[in-house]
Design a protein around this nucleic acid. Structure first.
Lengths: 153, 153
DNA sequence: ATATTTTAAGACAAATTTGTCTTAAATGTT
DNA sequence: AACATTTAAGACAAATTTGTCTTAAAATAT
């Protein structure tokens, strides 16, 4: 698996937030319902994203989570790294310590290239582009494709 | 993590076998020592590879494991699929059921492209090419770079 | 002030992956 | 035939990831 489940949940929640009309706080409960993700688990994931300053949280009624920056300033890569860390991009694909150009593992060269491209892909894709297509129904973030979340407040 | 530890162990063992002079049986114990992998764990991994007809096993003295085909006929992809299955290449990167061109998740298009390239990379790389460079010391499959395994029998 | 809503934090449980150990079965050697 | 070597199989344990539950803390509204 490329991304952990935590990371996937974080990405989907971020896309949900980016796809709602306003950038008001959205309660985690609402999101967990819409995304079909365990509430408490999602809570923890979102805590990691607020800790990384990608989101802001607010307690109490009318509280919830919202994006801490404009949608075009949050790249998928930021979310991936906030949750899964740099491991995917720094760790040897064959698990050898000290793998690098000087002491490469058999897959170092080929994987480095792919890794770069994946990194670039995630870095150059922001919530903005994807949210546009989620809003107009071209892309889906829920299992069934419901768009009920589009006007959550 | 792209590949499971089991898969990594399988790849490293396959590369070790491909890098030894002859294609005689090599005992799992020898391999586990050289690769610094738990003997019993490696045993199970190699059982998966023999079950997939990539390797052959033989019990008793002078027994062990050997490649079931010429090195240029075993691609990395075969090993990856034998151990980790097709999941990496078929499952939605955001975990959505039924993700595809008709009902794509936000990362479907971009990931499909990368996935294809990774698949092609693994399919077009055989043990042959890599073993050549392992033999001449350009690539390493052990943590410290020892080449003791080169003439195991 | 009190009650309600919501995130925060952390204990706990389940599931999965990884690792260890024991016994059995097969094969070659003496 | 007896013995040593090696894989096969499966129970078990540890570690990690994923998921659940409870309590606390903060903020709003009444």
């Amino acid at each position: 698996m490329l991304l952990s489940k935590s990371c996937i949940y974080g990405l989907r929640a971020a896309l949900l937030m980016a796809s709602t009309a306003s950038n008001d706080y959205i309660s985690i409960k609402e999101m967990s319902k819409n995304l079909n993700i365990s509430f408490h688990f999602l809570t923890k994931v979102l805590q990691q994203l607020t800790a990384a300053n990608l989101m802001e949280s607010h307690k109490g009624p009318k509280g919830g989570i919202r994006l801490a920056k404009p949608v075009h300033e949050i790249a998928l890569l930021h979310i991936v790294i906030a949750i899964d860390g740099y491991e995917l991009f720094t760790k040897c694909v064959l698990g050898l310590p000290g793998c690098g150009v000087e002491k490469p593992c058999p897959m170092h060269a080929m994987w480095s290239e792919k890794k770069e491209k994946i990194s670039h892909m995630l870095e150059s894709t922001t919530l903005f582009e994807l949210a546009e297509d989620v809003k107009n129904g071209k892309l889906r973030i829920t299992a069934n494709g419901d768009l009920d979340f589009l006007n959550l407040n």
